[in-house]
Deep mutational scan, measured.
Amino acid sequence: RKWEEIAERLREEFNINPEEAREAVEKAGGNEEEARRIVKKRL
């Protein structure tokens, strides 16, 4: 699934746990840019 690939990239890029990465992607509706913004806000 594409969402899992996005979550994996976010996890590696921001050094967050898989659960946090998945939550961000879900919140963003699968949009990678939006997920990235969500993760950055949390850091």
Rank of each mutant, 00 (worst) to 15 (best):
Ile16Ala: 03
Asn31Met: 07
Lys27Ser: 11
Glu19Leu: 10
Arg22Ser: 08
Val25Pro: 00
Arg36Pro: 00
Phe14Gly: 01
Phe14Glu: 02
Glu34Thr: 08
Leu10Val: 05
Phe14Cys: 02
Arg9Ser: 08
Ala28Leu: 01
Glu32Ala: 08
Lys2Cys: 06
Arg22Thr: 08
Asn31Gly: 03
Pro18Lys: 12
Glu12Phe: 15
Ala35Asp: 00
Val39Arg: 02
Lys40Val: 15
Arg11Phe: 06
Glu12His: 14
Glu23Met: 11
Arg36Lys: 06
Glu23Ser: 12
Trp3His: 07
Ala28Asn: 02
Ile6His: 02
Ala21Val: 03
Trp3Leu: 07
Ile16Leu: 09
Glu5Ser: 06
Lys40Tyr: 12
Ile38Pro: 00
Glu32Ser: 05
Pro18His: 13
Glu34Arg: 10
Ala28His: 02
Ile16Val: 08
Ile6Asn: 01
Arg42Gln: 15
Glu32Val: 08
Asn17Tyr: 08
Lys41Ala: 12
Pro18Asn: 10
Arg37Glu: 13
Leu10Ala: 00
Glu26Gly: 07
Arg22Pro: 01
Lys40Pro: 02
Trp3Phe: 09
Ala24Leu: 06
Trp3Thr: 04
Arg42Thr: 15
Arg22Asp: 05
Arg37Phe: 04
Glu20Tyr: 08
Arg37Lys: 11
Glu5Phe: 05
Lys2His: 12
Glu13Met: 08
Glu4Ser: 08
Val39Glu: 01
Glu33Leu: 11
Lys40Glu: 15
Asn17Glu: 12
Gly29Lys: 12
Asn15Arg: 09
Glu32Met: 10
Lys41Ser: 11
Glu4Cys: 07
Ala24Asp: 03
Glu34Pro: 01
Ala21Tyr: 02
Lys41Leu: 14
Glu19Ile: 10
Lys40Gly: 07
Lys2Glu: 12
Ile38His: 06
Ile16Gly: 01
Leu43Ile: 10
Ala7Lys: 03
Ala24Phe: 05
Val39Tyr: 03
Glu26Phe: 13
Arg36Leu: 04
Leu10Gln: 00
Ala35Arg: 00
Arg42Gly: 14
Glu19Ser: 10
Arg9Lys: 11
Arg37Asn: 09
Gly30Pro: 01
Glu4Tyr: 09
Ala28Arg: 01
Ala7Val: 12
Arg22Lys: 11
Arg11Ser: 09
Arg42His: 15
Val39Ile: 15
Ile38Glu: 05
Glu33Trp: 14
Ala35Glu: 00
Gly29Ile: 08
Glu20Met: 15
Arg9Val: 05
Glu26Tyr: 14
Glu34Tyr: 07
Gly29Ser: 11
Gly30Arg: 02
Ala7Asn: 03
Val25Ser: 02
Glu32Gln: 06
Pro18Asp: 11
Ala24Thr: 05
Phe14Leu: 04
Arg22Leu: 14
Glu19Phe: 12
Asn15Glu: 07
Glu19Cys: 07
Glu19Ala: 11
Asn31Glu: 07
Glu20His: 07
Pro18Leu: 14
Leu43Gly: 05
Val39Trp: 02
Glu5Ile: 09
Glu5Ala: 07
Asn17Cys: 09
Arg11Cys: 03
Glu12Ser: 14
Gly30Asp: 02
Lys40Thr: 11
Ala35Gly: 02
Glu13Pro: 00
Gly30Ser: 02
Glu23Val: 10
Glu32Ile: 12
Ala35Ser: 04
Leu43Pro: 06
Ala24Lys: 01
Glu12Gly: 09
Leu43Lys: 08
Glu8Gly: 09
Asn17His: 10
Glu23His: 10
Glu8Ser: 12
Ala21Gly: 03
Arg36Trp: 05
Gly29Phe: 14
Arg11Pro: 01
Arg36Val: 06
Arg1Trp: 08
Leu43His: 06
Val39Gly: 01
Arg37Trp: 05
Lys40Met: 15
Pro18Tyr: 13
Arg11Tyr: 06
Gly29Glu: 13
Asn31Val: 09
Ala21Thr: 02
Asn15Trp: 07
Ile38Lys: 03
Leu43Val: 06
Glu33Thr: 09
Ala7Glu: 08
Glu34Phe: 07
Ile38Ala: 08
Arg1Phe: 12
Arg37Gly: 06
Gly29Met: 13
Glu33Val: 10
Glu5Gly: 05
Arg1Tyr: 09
Glu34Gly: 06
Asn15Val: 04
Glu4Asp: 13
Leu10His: 00
Arg1Ser: 13
Arg37Met: 10
Ala35Thr: 02
Glu23Leu: 12
Val39Met: 06
Ala24Gly: 02
Glu13Leu: 07
Arg22His: 09
Leu10Arg: 00
Pro18Trp: 14
Glu33Ile: 09
Lys2Pro: 11
Arg1Glu: 12
Glu26Lys: 11
Glu26Asp: 08
Arg42Ile: 15
Ala21Pro: 00
